[in-house]
Design a protein around this nucleic acid. Structure first.
Length: 301
DNA sequence: GAGTTTGAAACT
DNA sequence: CAGTTTCAAACTC
């Protein structure tokens, strides 16, 4: 597996196959890793069976755990060296990583205000260990918290249920309320007012702010990780744009197709990379064109 | 913006 | 497994 740095900070994750570095699959890696870092590591066998598919976050993290279990460890290529063995700077600082939204959703930190952040490629090994520790403790730690509920249930529900004591489950402290769903029988909350017939809840849901939020949630572009396994935009919903998950998938598909074409034509690795980069440029420009168009702006060409 | 409240996650 | 601590987000002023 190789993370290729693209111009502009974007990164692609390429998978090696059958020992030779054939471009089998491309994944857009969240655009937040340290831009000077390059990573090259071995791919566990199961990974090669996933050619052409986009891995949801939990699957990616489980693969990392498998890598660690199998004893495989990443090796560094050009770029800053990763700390190894005794060179590790003390105990991992992300043992409490579950508190970090970025880590919890399987992302790297980017432009966060965190102190001594290890949730980046520079601290890859510690991060992998923290992921493994989390998965050891709770195999579903990186699964979305909002599931479909029991078989046959239409409404989504919190997989673990909330434990609210003082908020009446009518404030955003409550994970169920925050996800705009009712509390269910598995919740262990006290004084819950977040149920279908609750007059307090009805009063709240009739307020404009709630309606507005519900509208936003209804938009596919803004669906939070809790529902889809995609990165959350909890901190600033304005960050979302036309770059929806579909757009990312479509872009990846284009890049993959380009890679396969290069492979078919037996192009050199270098040429293949160039072709893919050019394709990425075309995709990016198209995305930007649509984004600007939707905002009534003009593109200088 | 600072201080307080809250509940999830981590820890013991 | 229950109680405690830590943490970051939500909330209030």
């Amino acid at each position: 597996m190789v993370i290729c740095q693209l111009k502009g900070g974007a990164q692609m994750l390429c998978i090696e196959h059958s020992g030779t570095r054939e471009l089998k699959s491309l994944h857009l890696v969240p655009q937040h890793q340290d831009q000077n870092n390059y990573l090259q590591s071995d791919v566990p066998k199961p990974m090669t069976t996933l050619v052409g598919r986009f891995l949801p976050v939990p699957a990616k993290l489980n693969l990392i755990a498998q890598q660690l279990d199998s004893g495989a460890r990443p090796s560094a290529v050009p770029g800053p060296a990763f700390p190894t063995g005794s060179a590790l700077p003390g105990p991992p600082k992300i043992t409490l990583a579950g508190y970090c939204d970025c880590f919890a959703s399987g992302d790297f930190c980017n432009n966060c205000n965190c102190n001594n952040c290890c949730n980046n490629l520079r601290h890859e090994i510690e991060r992998f260990k923290a992921i493994k520790a989390c998965l050891d403790r709770n195999p579903e730690a990186f699964q979305p918290k909002i599931g479909k509920g029991k078989l046959g249930d239409v409404k989504p529900r919190h997989t673990k249920g909330c434990n609210c004591k003082r908020s009446g489950c009518l404030k955003n402290y409550c994970e169920c309320y925050e996800a705009k769903i009712m509390c269910s029988s598995i919740c262990k909350c006290i004084g819950c007012k977040n149920y279908e017939e609750s007059p307090e809840r009805k009063t709240l849901t009739n307020m404009p702010s709630y309606v507005e939020m519900a509208d936003l949630e209804g938009s596919h572009h803004l669906s939070p990780t809790k529902f889809s396994g995609l990165p959350r935009f909890r901190k600033d919903r304005r960050l979302s744009s036309c770059i929806s998950w579909e757009v990312v998938e479509a872009t990846c598909a284009c890049l993959l197709a380009q890679g396969e074409e290069a492979e078919k034509e037996h192009c050199s690795e270098c040429l293949a990379e160039q072709m893919i980069l050019e394709e990425f440029g075309r995709c990016l420009s198209q995305i930007l064109r649509i984004e600007f168009k939707s905002k009534g702006l003009k593109i200088e060409s």
